[in-house]
Simulated scan of single mutants.
Amino acid sequence: MTVTDHRQPLLLLPGFLCDEDLWRDQLAGLADVADGRVADLGHGDSIAALAQQVLATAPPRFALAGFSFGGYVAQEIARQASSRIERLALLDTSFHADTPERIAQRRAANRTVSLPGKFRGMTEQLLPSFVAPPRLHDAALAQRINAMTLRQGREVFIRQNAMLREDGEAVLRSLTCPVMVLCGRLDVLTPLALHEEMAALMPQAQLVVVEDSGHMSPMEQPAAVTRAMRTWLSA
């Protein structure tokens, strides 16, 4: 007897220097309703190339969730193949193109990271930009984040950091599928106001604000993000 899997195909796109551990709790918490798979965004020379790689092995139709850098890849997937996206979730990300200043900052960061010495990943100095103040003393969370960035390493840092982020306004305005825009209330890297602006581009979009969370919402408040994603998957 053949058993049919009625779960939705769900593609999860991690952020800058992130891997499948970013989505650990969502993969487990949604396993009864979604067949989740985390894409590897560590290899490629552009966001367009990453989108093509994801599409090459994706099911014909799928739910798509992109976090931070992965949100830009998700928007590029929508640009290339919007008809294949059943529903879209954008978490703690942006839709604005890089400014000349931001491009200069990225290039400077790549020069610094390319210098001889040990790649340190997510240092204690950087952590306050990524997590909410109450989580700064959560040693287990800090260790998980740092381990993830160290697994990705120097070459992925340089590769992902060099990729130009393009403006996503036109592609977001063109979408008709269900959309969730989610942001940690205390996200300082991609603030709530940016997500309000993003959600306003899509009449069908639902804006979800995760309390007591900074930028790393899937790891900082996994239960809240999982609940929001479950609702989104049933929309």
Rank of each mutant, 00 (worst) to 15 (best):
S68T: 14
R37S: 12
L90Y: 06
A48D: 12
E76R: 05
R87T: 08
H43F: 09
L17E: 12
E20D: 14
P128Y: 05
P100G: 10
A74P: 06
A28Y: 07
R61L: 06
I103W: 00
G15D: 07
A31F: 03
L13T: 01
D19W: 07
L27Y: 01
D5H: 06
L127S: 07
G42S: 14
P9G: 06
L127T: 10
G121N: 06
G117F: 04
D19S: 12
R24A: 15
P14A: 08
C18E: 08
E101R: 11
L17A: 11
D19Q: 10
H6I: 10
G117A: 02
I77V: 10
L22N: 09
D92Q: 04
G36I: 12
A63N: 05
L17I: 14
L64C: 04
Q143H: 10
I47S: 04
I85P: 04
A140M: 04
E124Q: 13
L55Q: 01
D25H: 15
L11Q: 01
G36V: 14
D21Y: 07
T99H: 00
P60D: 14
L88M: 10
T57H: 00
Q26P: 12
I77N: 00
M122A: 13
G117M: 02
L88H: 06
S82A: 15
R107E: 13
S68D: 11
I47Q: 04
A147Q: 15
G36W: 04
L126S: 14
A51V: 08
L127D: 08
G117C: 06
G70P: 02
Q53G: 06
F67M: 08
T93Y: 01
F119E: 10
L64A: 03
H137E: 15
